[in-house]
Write a protein that binds this DNA or RNA. Structure first.
Lengths: 339, 339
DNA sequence: CTGAAAGCGCTTACAG
DNA sequence: CTGAAAGCGCTTACAG
């Protein structure tokens, strides 16, 4: 089943391949009857253009790479869906790359993306490695980094105001009268987790509290890790009255553990999550959380990337875009001022 | 920033492009010193092969398309991650296509996949349209269809034993003494939902029960729809004592609604879900559900697809592969025999 | 042990 | 209003 090419169409229509190409791309005037003949030949033969050949000539693949640490995390899954959708609307396909937080896999994927000549990549890296970014830069591939901190010389950066977000979460609990507040962080080498923790500490310090070291525990943004570290928190003494988890999945895992151990929420523990994934509003009690503007993040990322794709490398100017978070108060937090 | 090509490498190393190509692909013997020179030139120049050109010659893109109805559904997100991972392990990239259950978007995506010359596609279609499959078949693109019923002449099919699964879910509730059992279906035009419903009805019929029409309500596999139809179920009289939702997301939505209305689970309602997404075990009470063997499904799909990619079109033989489901009993169901 | 050259399916400057 | 031909960056039969 040999592929139908522009040549076959040209033969059948009795014109040159030049003309066929021009009617396909609408790139110069073609007389009505000629155009008709070409169009008829195309549908007759079931012609599909071969983008590979086109890309080889034009240097554009209309494809972008999306690097994700973990596509089964609902926050990233949602991000992926939105980016895919925005790409589609702009005529771009997206190659999905899950690094699974594995630097080697990520590195190998970057090679693939370069080899496949993607027009750009949206990058949420495993760790904060600069090497992969450097390789992308060397080949002149535009990159937008999301949710990670990197030198601005390497790429655009789209970040949440993580410190403020961490501050807001802690402040909400403090306003409800909590002073024994535990924190479940993500991997601390990741800037977002670190910055959120800074904000958290700042809020406590403002009311003269230095958090107990046992109250600060580290997860890895999975539900399982939330469950696991909550077991540890249940062993501390005195128990915290509130737990702030730096993503919703860990919060959900931690809440489940608390309840399995006979505690009620929010009576015994107030819980605050982070991300505002769809589930946060669906569980009972619904989860108070810090909402990330996923839609806005995805939009900005795609917009910035496609702008750079149009532009010449020399005129790129990397920007750092900081988006605000917003606390959504639901039923998992309660005031203990009257207790 | 002109791309470094095989020609530049050949020049620098003082050999022909033929030789360079052969050292890159390890496809014929090259003398040690020659090979060294070539390798040095490659790393000097920072050479990256251009897969586009390679694919144009070889006819292989090492890329597969993955069509999904909705990537924000955790079940599909998990499937996507696994397929992506298996693809990666076999040297294939995957282009992510969310149809968002929109036939036009799906159709347009299929065009893109054909134009991009993907080596194959894994297809979970929106609706049960045969047209898109036909177009793929016309271009000789191998296709494996997952979780949808189609004529076997068009593609391989990987299906759950949906009828048995529906039967098992109902049977579990019957064994616990339930007779007033509600069912939350998916879109009924989708074969899996339909088959599960058949199994459900069969189990009830075996004990001489014809389900009340008000007990059978239709959702669309989203959490929101689960919440929504549960409101309707709470208006029926007498109330059901158990609810079987044909996916976990709808079950979770329905459970939340029940509890918001003051009902306890499993005391007032037993709940059974479907899919066994990660969350099913994390919520409280944990959700009894019908587990789909996602890992096995993904493996089989990728395996079958890559087999066909190697083979000549003429020797393809489409198969229908039926995988068993398994009920996982957790805390959301309870016996009412002693009440 | 290695090279010259054709060709994959397109686009596009150049020409008329 | 349309065409002949070069070229995008590779691979590979053919030749020596």
């Amino acid at each position: 089943m040999r592929q139908v090419t522009i040549k076959d169409v040209a033969n059948q229509a009795g014109v040159s391949t030049t003309t066929v190409s021009h009617v396909i791309n609408n790139t110069r005037f073609v007389a009505e009857p000629t155009r008709d003949a070409v169009e008829k030949a195309m549908s007759n033969l079931g012609y599909h253009p071969n983008t590979l050949a086109r890309s080889l000539r034009s240097g554009e693949t209309k494809t972008i790479g999306l690097m994700l640490p973990d596509g089964s995390n609902p926050f990233f899954a949602d991000m992926a869906r939105r980016i895919e959708d925005l790409g589609f609307k702009n005529g771009y396909s997206v190659i999905l790359c899950n690094s699974d937080n594995d630097l080697e896999k990520q590195c190998s994927y970057i090679d693939t993306l370069i080899a496949k000549q993607v027009d750009g990549v949206i990058f949420i890296s495993a760790g904060e490695s600069k090497e992969d970014l450097q390789r992308l830069a060397n080949t002149g591939t535009p990159v937008v980094v999301v949710d990670r901190n990197i030198p601005l010389s390497l790429a655009d950066m789209i970040l949440l105001d993580n410190e403020q977000a961490g501050y807001d979460g802690a402040k909400h609990l403090i306003d409800l009268g909590h002073t024994r507040i535990a924190l479940i962080t993500g991997p601390t080498e990741l800037a977002p987790s670190h910055m959120r923790e800074c904000g958290f500490r700042k809020a406590l310090r403002e009311i003269g509290i230095e958090p107990k070291p046992e109250y600060i525990v580290q997860g890895d943004f999975t539900m399982k890790s939330g469950s696991f570290v909550m077991e540890k928190l249940l062993l501390t003494e005195p128990l915290p009255t509130a737990v702030f988890a730096l993503n919703d999945m860990m919060a959900i895992g931690a809440m489940a553990t608390a309840r399995r151990n006979g505690y009620r929420i929010p009576e015994d523990f107030s819980f605050v999550g982070f991300d505002n994934i769809e589930l946060a509003s669906a569980i009972v009690p619904s989860l108070t959380t810090i909402a990330q503007p996923v839609g806005k993040i995805a939009e900005t990322a795609v917009e910035r990337l496609l702008e750079k794709v149009q532009l010449d490398v020399s005129s790129w100017e990397n920007e750092e875009i900081i988006l605000p978070a917003k606390i959504i108060v639901r039923d998992s937090t309660r005031s203990i001022l009257l207790d």
